[in-house]
Computed example of a mutant assay.
Amino acid sequence: MIASGPRPVAPFSHAVEADGWVFVTGQMPTDPAAPDAPLPDGIAAQTRRVIDNLKVVLGGIGLGLEHVTMARIYLTQFERDYAELNALWPSFFAEGKLPARTTIGVTALAVGALVEIDLVVKRP
């Protein structure tokens, strides 16, 4: 668990490491400083908040987005939000250094979120 990380919405660890591979639990668009505050409006704002939360978790174990090898993205409004997510996604990574990715449409997510993202990260 990362002390400054987002409050868990279920019983889990923020991240687990095995043999240099780090598996980061899916993060929600909650504010670590105000976990009961309303979620940001829209897929872009929620995605940015999720990425910020993932950065907090990664930073807590000495890693960053540049170490991400795989991302799984879950969207509750796939058809509506997929294109906007795709337009925003490359801005989080160095040019030409996108991780592998799977995006999945789901019926619902915890806390009423529009998006959740989990990561597989390789420690250098």
Rank of each mutant, 00 (worst) to 15 (best):
V50A: 11
G20E: 06
G112M: 04
G112H: 02
Q46G: 03
T107P: 09
I51A: 12
T69W: 07
L39M: 06
I2G: 02
I43H: 06
E66G: 15
W21K: 14
I51V: 15
V68K: 00
A113P: 10
A100N: 10
I2N: 09
T25L: 06
G20H: 04
A100Y: 05
H14C: 06
R72W: 13
M70V: 09
Y74S: 15
D19Q: 14
K55V: 07
A113T: 10
S13H: 11
A33T: 11
K55P: 06
E116Y: 04
V57E: 06
R101E: 13
A100Q: 11
Q27L: 13
I117K: 04
R72S: 15
A33H: 10
L109C: 01
P32R: 07
F12Q: 14
L58I: 03
L119A: 02
P40V: 00
Q46T: 04
A34D: 12
D52V: 08
R123N: 02
P32A: 09
E95W: 08
A3Q: 14
P35S: 04
S91K: 06
V50P: 08
I61C: 11
N53R: 09
P8E: 00
I73G: 03
L114W: 11
D81H: 04
P8I: 08
P90E: 03
H67C: 05
F92A: 00
